[in-house]
Structure formats: structure tokens, C-alpha cells
Amino acid sequence: MAGTSNPTQIDGQLFEFLLRQGDNVLVLGHRTSEWCGVAPALEEDIALTNTALDLIGQTQLWLGYAGEVEGKGRSANDLAFLRDVYDFRNVLMLEVPNEDFGRTLMRQFLFDAFQVPWLTALCASSNQNVADIAAKSVKEAIYHLDRSTETVIALGDGTEESNARMQSALDYLWPYVGELFGEDDVDKAMHEAGVAPMPATLRGDWETTVNSTLSQACLTLPDSKFAHSGGRTGFRHTEHLGHMLATMQTLQRSYPGAAW
């Protein structure tokens, strides 16, 4: 596959790449929106729903462009609401249930710490649309990282109970982080075309942010190197994504084409 320059194949791989970007923010955006009205404090409720709103806004940009590249007339809405589990290309970490506020914020932090250097790198993409979407999104991602970092430190370095919950959130999520740095033919094709760097090259930056924050948060980095995979290729999602989509897509599934 590597080195081929068949335009259809490149477009197909660009489409896959764009779905990965869009589905990550869509799935995390939806999970985050589940806190609307039930967060532990009013300020946190507002922060979570604003974060969700940013992520859904970014989704519209990524999936809107994905639809254009695919060239079959599918809109961002079609892609979000009318695809099934195995068509989704998000990493598994983002689809697991929120569990509690601690795990929600730990996941946000682990993702933000990746997303900031990733989107920063994409600002220099050879694909102008990718660069434009990244430049728009990274401003929001930097803000999200500020907040998730502070909250992880406050809760980790908090009470015995909050520290224990954050440690358990970290232990639970850790086996999912490796997928952020996965590499396959799509990554290689994007790298060769100058669209995106290989995700693995960001691991050093990511670890610096994560190690420094977790040590301030009095949390212990898990030892395990095991990494779940299957989300970004669609090969194997967790059982949780189907349940999430059932809620997220119910309106468009029941009343196809409904609009307001």
C-alpha cells in the first residue's frame, strides 16, 4: 500500500483519517454531554456542557469535510447519526462510560494532553482544510487542557476518597491510552502525503505532560504496557458504543431526515 499515489485510494484513506478525527470528538462530545444537568456542581455542569459543545462544533468541521472528501453527498449529520458501531473510528477510551466525575475528567485530561500537540502539528498539514480545522480546534483544546489538568491535580491531591477515585480512574483508562499512538496504513499514507505526523512521534510530548501532571496529582503511573485497540480501525469496539449510539441516534433512526 505504501508509496501508491492512486487518487481514489488517497481520498479513501483521507476519508478514514477524517472519520478518526471527527469520531473522536463526536463520541467524547456525546459522553461529556451526558453530564448536562447532573454534574456535581453548577460551575462543573456549565464547564462540562461547554466542553461538549466545543467538541460537537469540531465534529461538524471534521465530519463535514469527511463527507465532502467521500463525495457521496453525506453531510456531517448523516455521518454522525446514520452510521453503525463498526463504521465508527474513534479510539476506545472515548466510548467507555463516564462512571464518575473523576474518570470523566481523567479521560478528558489524557485525551487533551494528546490533542493539543496533535492539533498543533496538524496546523502545518499539507492539506489546507485539515490545517484550518486544526487551527480552529486547537484554541479550544488548549483551554480544555488547562481545565482538565487543574481538575486532575485538585482531585488527585485532594482527599483520601478523591485520590483513590482518581487512581482507580487512571488504572481503568491506562490500557486504552496506547491506541492514541497506533499506526497502520492510513497513518502511513497521511504521513507520506504530509497531511499528519505519525501519532507515535507525539508520545514523548504526551508523556511529559502526563508525568508532570500525575506527579503533582499524587497519582501513580500504572506499570502495564498493554494497549487495547480496534476502535480507530472499526475492527472491534467495546460493547458500550452501541448503547451510546442507541441514545444518540434514536431520533434520526426513528424519524429519518427529521430537522428543526
Binding site: 460551575e43 456549565i46 461547554n50
Partner: peptide, 13 residues
Amino acid sequence: RVSQFGSTPCKAQ
């Protein structure tokens, strides 16, 4: 600062 987020995406409390 009370919160990094406010009543609209562009504001903080």
C-alpha cells in the same frame, strides 16, 4: 476566578 467556563462558550465566571 470562579470557573473557566461561563454562560456562553466565550465567557468565564
